[in-house]
């Protein structure tokens, strides 16, 4: 019953967001602010995540396939395919569920409990349009960009570590990576990143927008937003894999 209630409120918030998404004048300024906070400001951490994902994957794959029968190019194929299909979308999403999701939930939750959202409404401003819409749009717009960053740094990191550790020669890595490279996998990765961007920002907005119970309530909302966003990201990952592959 509680879950259904929550789902209803969540849908209602999204509906209001959709309806007020035409009030561009209201959220234009906030949109660019959010695009910077979600996109630009997340680039360093996503680069870091990408490089480490690629590196670790290369080393571990090389370790597991160390039999001599399997050509080194297989490692390149496995690493680049895994990164492009799955890891470049999911791992940054999980990290950003903490970074972006927690920030959004805290911001909105704090605005809710200190009556700033009421203040916006009392001035005659549409608070959903002002606060939720720019965050949702920024999430949907910027996560694919971050997916590109993570893909490139991930494959690049794998290539580099393979070369430095001597586990996989660059030529072999590239040979394998190119052999299985297909635009369809990229499309799949992009779809995932869109969905994850939407999930993280919408869950965080929902939890923050309907926060209650003072500072403690904001903390609870933030935790819930982060945890729920992670769970839904993994769930969506599974559903998308089942649907699209």
């Amino acid at each position: 019953m509680h879950a259904l209630n929550q789902l209803g409120r969540y849908s209602n918030l999204l509906y209001q967001g959709l309806r007020s998404s035409t009030e561009f004048r209201t959220y234009r300024k906030n949109l660019f602010q959010e695009l910077v906070k979600i996109g630009y400001d997340s680039v360093p951490i996503v680069i870091l995540v990408g490089i480490f994902t690629g590196s670790v994957l290369t080393i571990q794959t090389a370790y597991q396939l160390e039999s001599g029968f399997i050509p080194a190019s297989t490692i390149g194929a496995i690493v680049s395919e895994s990164i492009l299909i799955e890891l470049a979308a999911v791992i940054p999403a999980l990290v950003l569920a903490g970074k972006v999701g927690a920030r959004i939930a805290t911001e909105l939750g704090n605005m809710r409990v200190t009556e700033q959202i009421d203040a916006l409404e009392s001035m005659g401003l549409n608070s959903v349009s002002f606060l939720v819409v720019p965050r949702l749009i920024a999430g949907i717009a910027m996560f694919p960009v971050l997916y590109i960053v993570a893909s490139v740094t991930g494959v690049g990191g794998g290539l580099l570590v393979g070369h430095l550790s001597g586990a996989v020669p660059t030529a072999d890595f590239l040979k394998g990576a190119r052999m299985f490279f297909s635009p369809a996998n990229l499309v799949f990765g992009f779809v995932k990143s869109y969905v994850f961007g939407f999930i993280i920002t919408s869950v965080a907005c929902f939890k923050g927008y309907y926060a209650s119970g003072g500072a403690e309530g904001v903390g609870r909302s933030t935790t819930e937003a982060t945890v729920m966003a992670c769970i839904y990201v993994l769930l969506a990952d599974f559903i998308l894999a089942a649907l699209l592959l």
Binding site: F32, Q33, L35, V36, G39, Y40, V43, M142, V145, I148, V149, S151, V152, V155
Partner: peptide, 19 residues
Amino acid sequence: NEAKVGITVLLAAIVAVIG
């Protein structure tokens, strides 16, 4: 902010095309 967004998206697009 507009410039930052523009830089981010443009660089990502270039990197994506090259990649």
